[in-house]
Design a protein around this nucleic acid. Structure first.
Lengths: 154, 154
DNA sequence: ATGTATCCTAGCGTTTTGCTGGGTTATAAT
DNA sequence: ATTATAACCCAGCAAAACGCTAGGATACAT
């Protein structure tokens, strides 16, 4: 498993898509504006997401992206693996060149952990995250209204 | 949270230390040899681990490193944070420049997820990993013996 | 005094990151 | 048909991170 800022950008963009995808497709320009990610970088990320069948793009005016599957069928692990392509770590899978078993052992332990992390992230869907953040959403909206009434309504 | 090959190296080295630290301190040269990590890179990693009070080094002949705390009191999150220093992501924590709440919302959702991952890794100790890999250890040793009887005994 | 090992620092090639800047296609609106 | 809009595609580029080499300094056991 691998987790970097690239994965963060992808998850953030997918969250934006989940939240705003209610009425028609969302353009990358909008996500770029809202989330502060460059348009071209978003395009790269979405190339990966599209390749893994997580999003679908429609071209032309009124176009944009929408989730290819319902939000509860897209896991965080799916998103991260789509953009941060999975690099296999262990080279000693076949037990060759094991230094008395110790090297192989630690590698296997890491693989075990790696699998655990993957499983953990596979059990969290976009819908889960949004649902879990319900109170955050309410609180955030309230404070945003309180802070500046001039901000454009969503 | 951040998870890269750097963190993998650190966890691997700490696992090695846990498994071989029974009889006296373990030298970085040994870990370098066994795990295939360059000595100097290990030194850098252990500088971080030492700074976070996870290991203790003794100098001179017969020296090396040993765990500063028992293996069940050192979590994977501790190790990763020690070498892969924690970068804070959200810049809009104070709800300023929220685009109608949406930017802030997605950032908070990411933070939520990030905290979840951290908590998950905090609950796994070195001792847990080693214990969980018990069957792997047995299997690995057996296969290693079967494969090549010439390999030096641990 | 000597060797061993941690400790420390500077630098270097490579990869990854996130971006700018150019294009081309497909489609909806005019 | 023309035009504007958006997805698509690709080359390159500065900055950072990765993993390493190299050379030293310091502490300690023999």
């Amino acid at each position: 498993m691998r987790l970097s800022t690239k994965g963060r950008y992808a998850v953030t963009a997918m969250l934006d898509l989940t939240l705003n995808g209610g009425d028609g497709p969302v353009t990358l320009a909008e996500i770029s504006e809202t989330q502060g990610i460059s348009l071209s970088y978003l395009e790269q990320l979405f190339a990966g997401l599209r390749g893994k069948q997580l999003v679908r793009g429609v071209r032309g005016p009124g176009g944009g992206y929408y989730l290819a599957r319902p939000a509860d069928e897209i896991s965080i692990a799916d998103i991260i693996c789509a953009v941060d392509e999975w690099v296999e770590f262990t080279r000693c899978s076949g037990n060759k060149d094991c230094h008395g078993g110790n090297k192989c052992l630690t590698h296997n332990l890491w693989d075990e952990l790696s699998r655990d992390i993957y499983t953990f992230l596979s059990d969290i869907s976009l819908a889960d995250l949004v649902a879990r953040g319900g109170e955050i959403q309410a609180k955030c909206k309230k404070e945003a209204e309180k802070a500046g009434a001039k901000t454009k309504a969503a």
